[in-house]
Every structure is written in structure tokens, then in C-alpha cells.
Design a protein around this nucleic acid. Sequence first.
DNA 1: GCGGCTCTTCATCAATTCTTAATAAATATC
DNA 2: GATATTTATTAAGAATTGATGAAGAGCCGC
Lengths: 232, 232
Amino acid sequence: MPNILICDDEKDIVNALKIYLSNPDYTLYEAFSGAEALKIVKEQDIHLILMDIMMPVMDGLSAMAKIREISNVPILLLTAKSEETDKILGLNIGADDYITKPFNPLEVSARVNSQLRRYLNLGAGAPQQECFVNGGLELNDRTKELLLDGEKVCLTPKEYDILKLLISNPDKVFSPKDIYGAVWKEKPFGSDNTVAVHIRHIREKIEIDPAEPRYIKVVFGQGYKMEGAHKR
Amino acid sequence: MPNILICDDEKDIVNALKIYLSNPDYTLYEAFSGAEALKIVKEQDIHLILMDIMMPVMDGLSAMAKIREISNVPILLLTAKSEETDKILGLNIGADDYITKPFNPLEVSARVNSQLRRYLNLGAGAPQQECFVNGGLELNDRTKELLLDGEKVCLTPKEYDILKLLISNPDKVFSPKDIYGAVWKEKPFGSDNTVAVHIRHIREKIEIDPAEPRYIKVVFGQGYKMEGAHKR
DNA sequence: GCGGCTCTTCATCAATTCTTAATAAATATC
DNA sequence: GATATTTATTAAGAATTGATGAAGAGCCGC
């Protein structure tokens, strides 16, 4: 049951789109400004966004840029016929497709379906996998459980999210800012060794010697990573 | 072992797809017209169809419409790059995905696998279970009754739905938002400790000591779950 | 309209978790 | 080697989250 966010400052357009997308499987959210859209993306687990480019307060492209900092959810831009430039710009910034006004109902639903399928099935960045293994670590996203050498380890939500990010992207290095953006769904702000503190807590739980970590390695000046094909 | 039907009027394309999908687990069928495809679907237990849109005798879209009358087997349409209109039309008529020519072998197999997974897991094969057991709990979805150690327990509708969600997905952790979305079929907006209250009511009915629940466990910060393979 | 039942909301409490800030250690640069 | 930047460590206050009790709203059959 995909969650779809519709964002346009004109209520009529939002309502029209809601009708085009009236499908019992969809949960539709609506926003009337980029700022509102951003808020909903942070709070809800949105699977697809339809967003107008031209909006007061925060225009579509700015909002998209902000959303892209924290999510790779598919974004379909809504544009007027003539705004060719925006189209192109939008796609380069990070939109996945665009739809031109006036909308063709069939086209809207087709493109939405197509993007949803791509995102939910073939999973753009975050695959649908729900079990990750690395050495003696086993993380099951269904049960939110972590096993270390077969024994259950209790993680707090933030710890869990951070570990999931690392274990699901073996070898990839994430800077503390990356981690903050991905886990908190916010821009890293001010004095932030918050991530380091959490990393430490995780290490205390999964490492024999937190000062000589086997799992969460640090790449100085770059960030943290978890090596793939881990040997014991 | 899934049965896959490839349908295209060009033999070369059929052969190419057969190579891309050469997997000992697959049984491949071929058809060179929509009519032929329809015949095979009727005769065999096909689990996925790859079909060209442009074909003589009976084109892909017509064939798909006919097939959809008798089956909801996944259909991947094969289209040429330019046939944007067909893409859209196809998706609305009932295709599950499309692949554009020229084919990328990896893409073909990825999309095929993805659709097969979806279909074989969630699809026709999985019958609606109507009786769930966990420890001393027995929930019968036919009679909407819950037995605790053989004795009937009366649940309100919401309580029933929540318990059913949990008992039918053992070990899976549902956040309060997940539960709200699944049970209320509405967006989990606004004040949300409604779910917690219902959980409490359920616990009062099925737990000996609601403060130390045996059945509905909480994973702090993540949500609620019911452990499978429950011991008494 | 009147009870009975269910659902929702609100306020409060307790427990856990998160963040901050201060300080120490490690690493890289010059 | 000195310095600046990055990471590690610790502990305490702040913020969330879930539990709980109770009151009010809505609905239904009578």
C-alpha cells in the first residue's frame, strides 16, 4: 500500500490528482507548499511524490533538493507545457519523471504506477531486502532484531538505523553528515558529534574491543564503513 | 519452478530472451502471436508473460486484455523505445511492467525475477489463512473468534484487527503508525497514542499481567510484535 | 431518549533514549 | 615536532516513547 504525496499550491490541481489516483491501495497525502511537503516526507514513509515546480514559499525545485538530501523517493514534477527549461533542470537535479499540464489522467496513473513499481520492486537505493549478514552479525529488518554470533543484541532505534545503513551498504563509507542525513532525515546541524556518540554505543554492543573495532571501521577524515565479505 | 511464456512474432527476439532467461529453474514457453499466447495461457500454468506489443494476427494489447479476463499472471510488455503511448496504454490496461528494446539482459532478468517474486509469494498460490495460533491463543478469522487457552475472549473490532495483524505476522515489528495505517486504512496523522490504548485493552484481555506481556511485546522506539514459536 | 459498548482524546507517569558539552586521544598537515 | 582537524569517551540533562487511568463522543438497539 504505497503512500503518495501530492504537492501543489492550487487546491484544484491537488484535488484533480487525487481523483486520478483514487485507488484503494494508495494512501494519498497532500501538501500546498514545498515546506509542507518536506515536513510530510520527514514524518511519513512516502513512496512517491508528485510536485509542482511553481509554488510560493518554497518552490518545487528547492523542495526537491531538500528532499533529495534525505531520501531517494521517486519524484514526478508537474510542469506547465511551456516550461521546457524547468523540465530539463528538474530531471538533472533529481526528478524521476515529469508530467505536463494539463494532465492526461491515464498518463498520470501510468507514470505513477511505473515509478512506484520501479521503486518498490527494484528498489532504487534501498533494496527491499530484509536480512543482512556480515561476519557474526545478522540484522533482520522484519523483526528489528540484531544477532551477534547467534545472540540477540538490543539496539535503540537510532543505533538500529545507523547499523542498518552501514550493513546494507557494505564497504561504502558514510561521513557523519551522510549518516545524520540518512537516519535523522534532517540536515546536519551545528555541533554534531551526535553520530560519533551513537557509533560508540553500537560498538560497545557489538565489538569485543570498541577501541579496535572489527565491524564498524573508521576512515579518518572520510567517515565510517562496514567492510563486506567480513572475515572473523 | 516458474513457467514463463515469451511472445513475439520475431523469432530472433524470442531466442534472445530465451538466452537471457536461461535458468534451469525456468520452464520457457514460446508463442509467435497473441492468439498462440492466449492458447498456451489457457492450457499451461503460466507464471509470467513477456509479450511484444506490435504483432500481427493479434497484437499484444488485445492479447493482454483477453488474458486478463482469465488470469492475473504478471505481464511484462516489450516495447520499442519510441512507443511511449503504448507504454502508457499498456500499463493501464493491465501490464505489470515493460521493457524497452533493445533489451539489457540484466534488466530483463531483474524485472522478471521481481515480478515472479511478487506473484509467487503474494499471488494466486497463497491461500487466505483463516486460523492463527500462537501459544495459548487461537484466532479464527472465519468466526472472528479468539480463544485463550480454549476459552473465548471477546474483542472489539479494532482490537480484533490489531491482534489479527500481529498474530498473522509473527515476529514482525509494527510501528504504531504501521498498525494505524493497516487497521484504520487512514493516514496516521495527528494525535497518535490511540494505538497504544487499544494495545493496552487487548493486553488486559489476553495477558495474565499486562505489565509483563507474554504475547504482545514492545520493541522500544520501533513498535509492537508478537513472537512466533511461542513458548508457554 | 436511554443505557451499553466502543473508540478517541487528554493528562500524567515512568522508563528509555537522545543530545549536548567538555575533555581526551588520534591522525594528518605543515 | 607543533598545530589543526577529526574521532573517542564520558556523563548529565533534555526529549521521546509507551503505559496508564479516566473522561467524553459517537453509535446502536431498545
